[in-house]
Simulated assay, not measured.
Amino acid sequence: MGRLGSTPSQTVGPYLSIGLPWEDGPFVVPEGTEGAVWIRGQVFDGEGAPVPDAMIETWQADPAGRFDHPDDPRGRGGSGFRGFGRCPTDERGEYGILTLLPGIVPSADGGDQARHIDVSVFARGMLSRVVTRIYFEGQDNSGDAVLASVPEERRTTLVAAKAENGYRFDVRLQGEGETVFFAV
C-alpha cells in the first residue's frame, strides 16, 4: 500500500473579505473620541505595487500602558479599552486604524518598552501572517530593547511619521525598504 502525501499548504488569501471581517473594523475607538489619531498607510509587495487584498490587524495597550486582558502581568487594566483593530486594504493598498496612542509598557527585564502597536499583516501569497511593530516619530524610543535589537539602518521601517490627524505607516512586504518583521 502506498503512502499518502500531505495536504498542500494554503495561503492566507484571497478570501480575507469573507473570513476575517471584524465588526468594529478599523475603529479601536469610536470616531470623536478625545485624543484619537489615525494610523494610515499602504501595503506594498516586493515589486513596490500596492496590495489591494491585504489586512492589517493591530493590538496595543491603552494610553496608561495597560491591557484590559487577564494576561497583563500587572493584572487586568479594567479600562474597557479593547486595543484591537482590523482593516482590509482597499484597491490602492491603503488602510486606516483609528486609535489612541498606547502608553509605555514595562518589559520583562524591568525596563520600559516605548509606545508601540503590535501589527499582523495578512496577504495573498503568504502562508502565515507577518508581525511587526509601529513606533512613533517624536516619542522617546531610545530605551526600547526590541527596537534597539534592529540594525540602526532598518529602524526607520518601524517608525510611523507624523501626518495630518495622526501618523503614516507603510508596510513593504519585501524588497527595498522592506519592513522589519519579527519571529513570534
Rank of each mutant, 00 (worst) to 15 (best):
residue 74 R to F: 08
residue 80 G to W: 05
residue 70 P to R: 11
residue 100 L to W: 01
residue 96 G to I: 04
residue 87 C to P: 04
residue 41 G to Y: 01
residue 28 V to K: 03
residue 54 A to N: 04
residue 83 G to S: 00
residue 36 A to V: 09
residue 31 E to C: 07
residue 91 E to Q: 13
residue 63 P to A: 14
residue 58 T to G: 01
residue 67 F to C: 05
residue 67 F to M: 08
residue 81 F to Q: 08
residue 67 F to Y: 15
residue 30 P to K: 14
residue 75 G to S: 08
residue 77 G to D: 06
residue 80 G to I: 06
residue 34 E to F: 09
residue 90 D to F: 01
residue 94 E to P: 07
residue 64 A to E: 15
residue 96 G to P: 04
residue 77 G to N: 06
residue 47 E to A: 15
residue 94 E to R: 15
residue 45 D to C: 10
residue 34 E to D: 13
residue 69 H to N: 15
residue 54 A to D: 00
residue 91 E to N: 08
residue 57 E to P: 00
residue 59 W to M: 11
residue 53 D to N: 15
residue 99 T to Q: 03
residue 69 H to K: 12
residue 29 V to E: 00
residue 41 G to N: 07
residue 55 M to P: 00
residue 99 T to D: 04
residue 38 W to F: 12
residue 87 C to G: 04
residue 59 W to L: 08
residue 72 D to G: 08
residue 84 F to T: 14
residue 73 P to W: 13
residue 64 A to Q: 13
residue 36 A to N: 07
residue 28 V to R: 03
residue 83 G to R: 02
residue 70 P to E: 07
residue 41 G to A: 06
residue 97 I to M: 00
residue 34 E to P: 14
residue 62 D to A: 09
residue 65 G to Q: 06
residue 39 I to D: 00
residue 57 E to K: 04
residue 44 F to M: 12
residue 101 L to M: 15
residue 74 R to P: 07
residue 66 R to N: 13
residue 79 S to P: 13
residue 77 G to K: 05
residue 49 A to M: 14
residue 64 A to P: 02
residue 82 R to P: 07
residue 92 R to K: 12
residue 76 R to E: 15
residue 59 W to Q: 08
residue 73 P to Y: 07
residue 58 T to E: 00
residue 102 P to F: 01
residue 56 I to E: 01
residue 86 R to G: 03
residue 80 G to N: 02
residue 46 G to P: 14
residue 61 A to G: 10
residue 61 A to D: 01
residue 66 R to E: 10
residue 88 P to E: 08
residue 63 P to I: 10
residue 99 T to G: 01
residue 64 A to H: 09
residue 71 D to K: 14
residue 64 A to K: 14
residue 34 E to T: 11
residue 49 A to D: 13
residue 95 Y to D: 03
residue 92 R to W: 06
residue 100 L to T: 04
residue 92 R to I: 05
residue 70 P to M: 05
residue 44 F to T: 12
residue 98 L to W: 03
residue 36 A to F: 09
residue 70 P to I: 04
residue 46 G to A: 13
residue 37 V to L: 11
residue 103 G to D: 11
residue 47 E to K: 13
residue 59 W to H: 08
residue 59 W to Y: 15
residue 35 G to V: 08
residue 72 D to N: 15
residue 36 A to K: 10
residue 89 T to W: 05
residue 84 F to A: 15
residue 51 V to K: 11
residue 103 G to V: 13
residue 104 I to M: 10
residue 68 D to Y: 00
residue 32 G to E: 14
residue 100 L to D: 03
residue 87 C to H: 11
residue 67 F to V: 09
residue 71 D to M: 14
residue 34 E to Y: 06
residue 56 I to F: 00
residue 67 F to E: 04
residue 98 L to E: 00
residue 38 W to A: 10
residue 65 G to H: 10
residue 56 I to H: 03
residue 83 G to C: 02
residue 95 Y to P: 00
residue 72 D to E: 04
residue 66 R to L: 14
residue 64 A to N: 13
residue 105 V to D: 06
residue 101 L to Q: 11
residue 60 Q to E: 15
residue 31 E to I: 12
residue 104 I to C: 10
residue 63 P to K: 15
residue 103 G to N: 09
residue 73 P to N: 04
